[in-house]
Amino acid sequence: MTGEHRIAASREDVWAALNDPEVLLACIPGCETLEQTADNRMIAEVVQKIGPVKARFKGEVELVNVVAPESYTIQGEGKGGVAGFARGAADVTLTEGDGETLLSYAVHAQVGGKLAQLGNRLINSTSKKLANRFFDNFSAHLNGPEEPADTDQSNAAI
């Protein structure tokens, strides 16, 4: 699943925000705690509802393939106890242009346990919704509320 957002900020500002635990905490939907434990490593607690299953996921978030200030992969894995587990990764790329930044992403998500049993059919739509909400929050954080870009290709990839 892929998507794009235009953000009215410089690439350096966007990059800095993408690496700021406080910004991530504020923007990741359902994120209750996010703590930096090392360079590019964080521990997070996220409450999420997928279909009929609501669970609190505890897990690590890691930034890999970091090419400042152009791209990184943010990946995480959370354990939701009896609800199962969820893991995902987003390849994020920043492109400069016209005083704004084009943020492109590609998301992969995988779930297991009860989440998969009851919610698998909803994973794509939920991932898309969560990704959109994150980048909406993120855009809003940097430059106030903004419509998602027309170039959103999420549907094509589902």
């Binding site: 346990g113 049993q117 009851l118 698998n120």
Partner: peptide, 14 residues
């Protein structure tokens, strides 16, 4: 099952 061994048909929805 999906390729990871997760049961996709785990309720009467599926």
């Amino acid at each position: 099952y999906d390729q990871d061994g997760q049961l996709l048909t785990g309720s009467y929805m599926d």
